[in-house]
């Protein structure tokens, strides 16, 4: 009975405190006060009903106390202060929601297709790991944020593009994590240059073997291109790979690996996948990158 009465009294006294957390805190404090007084009266020998009644009466008139509390809590400045805190809280919530609902750029599903296998007229360079995958044909692999994917093909396209083989390294440069992975690079050689902007998807193509020299590498003239699931073709920024990489000046060299960097700008957020294509459909390489599991920067 006493608990119900004090709760009603406290609720009435605090009813006009506008800000819910303040109201609850004040109710708790008044209830604690009542409990202390009641307990003291009980210890003095009073019976429970009388102790509760006396302790409640000693608090005074709930409405009068409520009036005084309202004057303390509901000033213009306290309202302004609480509004600003509420607005800040709302901003934080919105930011968190945005980050949660925006798909993270954390994993890619890579599918690569070997459309052609051994061509005796071409030189072949092997990567052991890739070789097993290569022999298995179609391979699908989901890798974490930093990817190294190896795929090999060899062949000669109709456009006289002799491509030997590639390591495809896909990196989200916007993460500022541009320590390149390309088969154990020597960090003393330094990272590749950072693109001017981090828009789109950055692909780093590494050539594996030191025996390769740029002149022997062709990415195919018009054969090498990037398309998305809608058929949109992308322009390259930075290094133009539409033409072969003939000299060292066009390609970087890191520890006997060659790399060429592609930046695909302005990839639409709704694009599901992009595909790198070298060579022809009959004799070439396709590397499909599933973007739906990653964040597209545009």
């Amino acid at each position: 009975m006493g608990e119900k009465n004090i709760q009603s009294w406290a609720a009435e006294a605090c009813r006009r405190i506008e800000f819910f957390p303040d109201r609850k805190a004040m109710e708790r404090e008044l209830t604690d006060h009542f409990a202390d007084h009641r307990d003291a009266l009980l210890e003095s020998g009073m019976n429970a009903a009388d102790a509760e009644e006396l302790a409640l009466r000693a608090l005074g008139d709930a409405e009068e106390v409520g009036e005084q509390l309202a004057q303390v809590y509901n000033t213009v400045w306290t309202r302004l202060w609480r509004f600003s805190r509420g607005a800040l809280f709302l901003l934080v919530i919105l930011f968190v929601l945005f980050r949660v609902l925006t798909p993270p750029f954390s994993a890619y599903k890579i599918r690569y297709f070997d459309l052609d296998f051994l061509d005796d007229s071409a030189q072949m360079y092997y990567d052991r790991d890739a070789y097993e995958a290569y022999n298995e044909g179609f391979t699908e692999e989901t890798i974490g944020k930093r990817l190294t994917l190896t795929n090999w093909t060899a062949g000669k396209s109709d456009a006289a593009a002799d491509y030997m083989g590639f390591h495809w390294t896909v990196k989200n440069w916007a993460r500022m994590d541009y320590t390149m992975e390309c088969n154990d690079l020597d960090p003393n050689d330094g990272p590749p240059p950072v693109p001017d902007s981090y828009e789109g998807v950055v692909l780093l193509l590494c050539l594996r073997d030191s025996a390769l020299y740029p002149g022997s590498v062709h990415f195919g003239n018009s054969d090498f291109h990037v398309v998305d699931d809608r058929g949109t073709q992308y322009q390259f920024a930075g290094r133009d790979l539409a033409s072969p990489c003939w000299s060292m000046g066009e390609c970087g060299r890191v520890w006997n690996r060659y790399y060429i960097q592609l930046t695909l700008r302005s990839v639409d957020e709704d694009v599901e996948w992009i595909e790198l294509r070298a060579g022809s459909d009959e004799n070439g390489l396709r590397l499909r990158i599933d973007l739906m599991e990653g964040e597209v920067f545009g």
């Binding site: 005074g60 009068e64 509390l69």
Partner: peptide
């Protein structure tokens, strides 16, 4: 003191 009225005083002083 009417005990309940202590708290508006205290909270005003706190403010």
């Amino acid at each position: 003191l009417r005990e309940g009225t202590l708290y508006p005083i205290l909270h005003k002083l706190e403010q």
